[in-house]
């Protein structure tokens, strides 16, 4: 806790302490330290999947809680997500090699007619930070683009964003088209954006409305867990 311990040596910590330290380092957005800790755990023969879930994802979950509770704000969260991504960079090839289960893949984009992207970008960054694979379609997406992308990418989750009252109804067009094609239930559909609310999400047939990026991550994890349980 005190400043005198600043020169703490990561490799001298036992596993349990090191993981706790990683939670702190993620919280503080310390990318170098996270990379170092991931390497140490790999040397100690941890499975890449365990490092991902027990250290990185769990650490980001704590960040998400404090973001949700108004203790952390976007700048801190993005730094934390950046640190997480540094760790992921080391783990990703190993995860693919080992055939470990993926957390999930999301296709995300702002709906047709809407050119706002800050909120959508934040969600994409936080989802990546939480260990999801994200395919960002950018702004102004017609229904065809969404559908092509979720099929091609074999996505688990479709995320749609709208910042305008005039464009949010387009989300329903996308969902209705998915229903018509008989593929609605193959995907988790999450929607978000400043003018939306839960009632709207329900009314258009989305799985959930996500108030902010932290809620999006939690909701995505929750739905992915349910999906795995069904298999």
């Amino acid at each position: 806790m005190s400043d005198e311990e600043d020169d703490l040596i990561l490799s001298e910590l036992n596993d349990e302490e090191l993981v706790l330290q990683m939670f702190d380092d993620l919280y503080d957005g310390m990318a170098e330290e996270i990379a170092e800790s991931v390497d140490i755990l790999l040397e100690r023969k941890w499975l890449p999947y365990d490092i991902l879930t027990k250290a990185l994802v769990e650490g980001m979950r704590i960040v998400g809680i404090d973001f949700r509770d108004g203790i952390l704000f976007v700048p801190e969260v993005l730094l934390a997500a950046g640190a997480m991504k540094r760790g992921m960079k080391i783990l990703k090839p190993l995860l693919i090699e080992s055939g470990a289960p993926q957390l999930g893949k999301m296709v995300i984009g702002t709906v047709k007619g809407d050119i706002h992207d800050i909120g959508k970008n934040l969600v994409a960054m936080m989802m990546e930070g939480a260990g999801f694979e994200v395919v960002d379609l950018g702004i102004n997406n017609p229904v065809e683009d969404y559908l092509a992308a979720i099929k091609e990418e074999k996505a688990d989750i479709l995320g749609m964003s709208a910042l305008l009252t005039t464009t949010m109804p387009y989300m329903k067009v996308v969902i209705d088209t998915m229903i018509a094609e008989g593929i609605r239930d193959d995907y988790i559909v999450l929607v978000g954006g400043a003018p939306l609310n839960e009632e709207f999400g329900k009314a258009i047939g989305a799985d959930a409305y996500c108030r902010d990026a932290a809620v999006a991550v939690e909701t995505a994890k929750d739905y992915m867990a349910r999906k795995h349980n069904q298999l």
Binding site: D3, L20, D24, Y27, M30, I62, D69
Partner: peptide, 11 residues
């Protein structure tokens, strides 16, 4: 102020 999370090292 919302309670700050306790940290092991570094402020």
């Amino acid at each position: 102020a919302p309670p700050k999370r306790e940290r092991r090292r570094r402020k």
